[in-house]
């Protein structure tokens, strides 16, 4: 789906846990997530800590969308 969105002319970032799959599928901008059942959260943390990691991932996603790339790129999240 990321490829079709990209093909339609929209820059797209793929937030996912298993980044090798994203690379194989062909996403160009990739942000690693936390875990398969909760990519942008972590039930083991407090509500506030969980919001913090979600903000960090979303910030990184926005940063990826604002970064020119010429090849498939993984943007690591700083927590």
């Amino acid at each position: 789906m990321v490829k079709e969105i990209e093909r339609a002319g929209l820059p797209v970032v793929h937030v996912c846990t298993v980044t090798p799959i994203s690379m194989t599928v062909g996403a160009n901008r990739i942000v690693p997530a936390i875990a398969i059942p909760h990519p942008l959260g972590n039930p083991a943390l407090s509500k506030e800590e969980e919001l913090h990691i979600r903000r960090c991932i979303c910030e990184t996603a926005l940063k990826a969308l604002q970064t020119e790339v010429t090849e498939q790129t993984i943007f690591d999240v700083k927590y």
Binding site: M1, V2, I5, A8, G9, L10, P11, V12, V13, H14, V15, C16, T17, S22, A27, A33, I36, P37, P39, L40, C58, A61, L65
Partner: peptide
Amino acid sequence: KMKADGVDCVIMTST
């Protein structure tokens, strides 16, 4: 549809 509605960029999340 998104393109027609003026969306500029997309965040796709996967589990």
